[in-house]
Design a protein around this nucleic acid. Structure first.
Length: 444
RNA sequence: GCCCCGGUAGUGUAGUGGCCUAUCAUGAAGCCCUGUCGAGGCUUCGACUCGGAUUCAAAUUCCGACCGGGGCGCCA
């Protein structure tokens, strides 16, 4: 048996089929399992697309070659050239009879975690060996879906005239106060990792870009140790000009969610099945209830709301909305100004200054999106900055954009992982990030 | 930041003062087996997080450190 394989001829496993009977094919991947029955053995070779079976006959290969093939450790990288032969006895309908077999990179033993072992592995252990964890197709499926979700979102926003931009993640000031900023040393100065592109998105409205979006990491130094918080997350931020009110922003968001979930359902069925989750596309229009109505609904259900919605009431509201409206996604609108006072750029309701033109979008009781209409009148904006004790001088780079013609505008920030977390019903949001960062984890 | 809980082979676990030379599964090593697809059978290997304390005796109790899990607050 030849022990050199030409990788130039390599095909992905999923591209093979029993219709290619008799052809000589080359595959390469990780040796998932060896089932040696004595006179015949089956080697399962996996790549990202699927698994093929290499069938080895002792009588045909000779004792030495047969023994050598069956001694390769699991998870080694191997390449095989052989004849593709249809066979009813194989679940895929075909197998490969090897003519050349090369061990490209032998795997050490024992493996840090098993790829196909029939025992559970804790998330923390999995994350410590994430490269190995990602070899599991169910784990990979999450990221296939993530990719589809993002692609669907980009496609929708492009179709609606949004331009994709990239703003700096190194900033001098945050949009939401200093305690959640990661300080960094920037040459000889103090700077921070951006917690949100908020100020830049608005400045681009002043630049006349009209409709923009950015998909980029956001950094939060919050001391939040929960299954729905990470220190670095993918944030989809959009901003749009010439809106009449926050309702226009909500319309865009609704369309975005419907389109991207439908996209996932259409192209990602295989991956959803692999994860065993049923996803339904939310029906438009999504219910829109005011903050005050939400509080009232909760109190009727016997849940007391302590000022702002806490975790318990958020979850309960998710149940109520599902029962009452059959809605998994819903807006909570008109947040009280009192609760948004740190959001100095939020526009207050012209009809009632006790309220803002700000909303959340929740998905089964978890907050996905926060957004609203921004304050574009510089005088009001400066007042709101001063109200919470900020010095407008520190925001001069931002305020400047409001002095020379700023259109009415609004937008939102959406947590990509939050969508995946709820959509795939994963126990922990960390599963939606390949290499998550939280309060305690910086590696791998 | 606050409250509660935990740390046993590579992985997941049983064991709450002496019955532990520590259970089971998975895995690894070896042998048998020509149709496996969670292959099967037999044999072997491999662990009490670290430091201190209590006790005749500690995986088991206490203290500290480190690491992890759940919840809350805050948020995307």
């Amino acid at each position: 048996m030849n022990d050199i394989v030409d990788l130039g001829k390599r095909m992905e496993n999923a591209s093979l089929s029993k219709e290619m009977a008799g052809q000589t094919v080359t595959v390469a991947g990780w040796l998932q399992d060896t089932r040696n029955l004595g006179g015949i053995s089956f080697l399962l070779v996996r790549d990202r697309s699927g698994i093929v079976q290499i069938t080895c006959l002792k009588k045909k290969l000779g004792d030495d070659a047969f023994a050598k093939l069956n001694a390769v450790p699991r998870e080694s990288v191997v390449a095989v050239t052989g004849e593709l032969k249809p066979n009813q006895q194989v679940s895929s309908g075909f197998e490969i009879l090897p003519q050349a077999f090369q061990v490209i990179a032998e795997a050490a033993s024992p493996l840090p975690i098993g790829v196909i072992d029939k025992v559970g592995v804790e998330l923390d252990t999995r994350l410590n060996s994430r490269f190995m964890d990602l070899r599991k197709s169910q784990v990979l499926a999450v990221f296939r879906i993530r990719e589809l979700l993002i692609r669907g979102m980009r496609e929708y926003l492009t179709s609606q005239g949004f331009m994709e931009v990239t703003t700096s993640k190194i900033v001098a000031a945050g949009a939401e106060g200093g305690s959640t900023l990661f300080p960094i040393k920037y040459f000889e100065r103090q700077a921070y990792l951006a917690q949100s592109p908020q100020l830049y998105k608005q400045m681009l409205m002043g630049a006349g870009l009209d409709r923009i979006y950015e998909l980029a990491p956001a950094y939060r130094a919050e001391q939040s140790d929960t299954v729905r918080h990470i220190a670095e997350f993918a944030s989809l931020d959009i901003e749009m000009s010439f809106i009449r009110s926050e309702e226009d922003v909500m319309d865009t968001l609704e369309g975005l969610m419907e389109y991207s979930l439908e996209y996932v359902l259409r192209d990602g069925k295989k991956y959803l099945d692999e994860l065993g989750v049923e996803v339904s596309v939310p029906k438009m229009p999504f219910p829109r209830i005011t903050f005050a109505e939400a509080v009232k609904l909760l109190e009727e259900a016997g849940v007391m709301v302590p000022g702002d919605l806490d975790t318990e009431s958020e979850k309960k509201l998710g149940e109520i909305m599902l029962v009452r409206h059959g809605a998994e996604m819903y807006f909570i609108t008109k947040f009280p100004s009192e609760l948004k006072k740190n959001t100095f750029y939020a526009m207050r309701d012209p009809a009632n200054p006790e309220l803002t033109n700000y909303f959340d979008l929740d998905y089964r009781g978890e907050e996905l999106v926060s957004g609203g209409q921004r304050e574009h009148r510089i005088g009001v904006l400066i007042n709101q900055l001063e109200e919470i004790g900020y010095d407008p001088k520190d925001f001069e780079f931002y305020l400047q954009a409001f002095r020379y013609g700023m259109p009415p505008h609004g937008g939102f920030g959406l947590g990509i992982e939050r969508v995946l977390h709820m959509m795939l019903r994963l126990p922990n949001i960390r599963e939606c990030v390949m290499f998550p960062r939280d309060m305690y984890r910086v590696t791998p």
